[in-house]
């Protein structure tokens, strides 16, 4: 069976699933709105988790939490289920499809056959929608892809039961209960407040302070880690920033789009001004990535170059601190 489902491409998978599922149920929620209300913007340095043999930096909130917060704030309910037994996971999926209910799934990327080889890493917090089944083939709407795609039941089982950090355990989720009217306005305010709190947290590895901490680390790397490792780590920051479903510069732009939309909904022109400001900060993140890429492209380890990118990052931290303080006051 095939459920009438409108696929729309998005910049980030989790927002995209929220937005597409909400649209399916008749609520026009854009990707930026889902991202902003769910307080997706974040920064955290996670020294104890290693990804591809380099420390992890995350630019987003934990997997699944954007939808959780979004649901709570606008007043919908989501049903979530994890499975030990792949057979049961499949039965539950088929039941939902038979009931004409498209569902979100958390999956691992490594065995996702329609992804380019180079993008297939052991990253387990990817999200997609299943909207039908024909014979043994599932119809897939993966929000980061331009068009819909398919997976066989074997392929789908493999990605649903990928192992490692954030193992999806066959997680299935879908909205079940909708109020007559979504509480969009209060949800936006709550979402913004939460992001400000996160980014201005008085903790060394989180938010603006985390960005500063990272800048200090970068300055030290060429001395403490040697040329090769320092370049590898710097490359990792840029990859975490611009891809692997995370996005740093890109996230600033989605947030800018969110503030612009919010400005209209809340009738608050100041948010429009702040939207411009975060767009500028997004540009600075991109300049930082560009400068960093020059270092690891030439495999140079001139301490000067490292100090230069670290200074750029410190500047970003300063700008973001001012930005989030202003945003907090506005709301």
């Amino acid at each position: 069976m095939k459920i009438e489902f409108k696929h729309q491409q998005s910049a980030h998978c989790e927002n995209g699933v929220i937005s597409n599922l909400m649209r399916h149920h008749g609520f026009d929620i854009s990707e930026p709105l889902a991202f902003g209300i769910g307080s997706g913007l974040f920064f955290c340095y996670v020294p104890f988790i290693k990804v591809n043999h380099a420390p992890a930096f995350t630019y987003r909130a934990l997997p699944g939490i954007i939808f959780k917060r979004f649901a709570k704030r606008v007043g919908i309910k989501i049903k979530r289920e994890k499975f030990k037994d792949p057979k049961l996971a499949k039965v539950r999926l088929d039941e939902n499809l038979n009931n004409n209910n498209p569902v979100g799934l958390q999956v691992g990327v490594y065995n996702l056959v329609y992804f380019p080889d180079d993008y297939r890493f052991h990253f387990n917090a990817h999200n997609l929608v299943v909207y039908g089944k024909e014979d043994q083939t599932y119809l897939i709407s993966d929000p980061v892809m331009e068009t819909v795609t398919t997976l066989t039941d074997k392929e789908l089982e493999k990605v649903r039961f990928a192992k490692g950090a954030f193992a999806p355990k066959g997680q299935i989720y879908y909205p079940v209960d909708f109020p007559e009217k979504l509480k969009i306005q209060s949800a936006i305010v709550k979402g913004i407040k939460h992001t400000c709190k996160d980014m201005l947290a008085p903790m060394p590895l989180i938010g603006v302070k985390g960005i500063r901490y990272t800048a200090r680390l970068i300055k030290k790397w060429p001395k403490t880690k040697g040329v090769k490792l320092a370049n590898h780590y710097l490359g990792q920051i840029v990859r975490m920033q611009e891809e692997i479903g995370t996005g740093g510069g890109g996230f600033r732009y989605i947030y800018g789009a969110f503030l612009q939309e919010a400005s209209g909904i809340l009738n608050n022109p100041e948010l429009e001004v702040l939207s411009k400001e975060i767009t500028e900060i997004g540009d600075l993140w991109r300049d930082f990535a560009l400068e960093a890429s020059r270092i690891y492209k030439n495999r140079s380890a001139q301490v000067d170059a490292y100090v230069k990118v670290a200074t750029q990052l410190e500047h970003i931290a300063d700008r973001e601190e001012t930005f989030f303080k202003k945003l907090k006051k506005t709301i």
Partner: peptide
């Protein structure tokens, strides 16, 4: 975007 592609290619080379 080149900076991304270079980072990814370096990771693959590694």
């Amino acid at each position: 975007w080149d900076p991304k592609t270079i980072a990814l290619n370096n990771a693959i080379e590694e």
